[in-house]
Amino acid sequence: MTTAPSAEHQRLVKMANQIASNIPTRTEVAAQVGHHLRQFWTPGMRAALAQIADDTPEQLSPEVHAALEGMA
């Protein structure tokens, strides 16, 4: 879609990483992140995040990647 990372994408990256680092109970973090994304994110936002994970995987923390894999 877009080449330069848009403000929208930057926010999604920040949000996802922040969720992953802040999920309180630090067990099964990936599952919790996945649950959070399903609960509060629109499908469009989740799809965009998955796209980012493919395009620029280094932007996202391992927990976010794991969460996306778990959701797939």
């Binding site: 848009s6 403000a7 929208e8 926010r11 609960q39 509060f40 994110w41 629109t42 499908p43 936002m45």
Partner: peptide, 16 residues
């Protein structure tokens, strides 16, 4: 059945 956008996401999407 899917959640909608929050204010900051609406605003980001507007810019997009």
């Amino acid at each position: 059945e899917e959640p909608g956008k929050r204010i900051p996401n609406m605003l980001d999407a507007a810019i997009s």
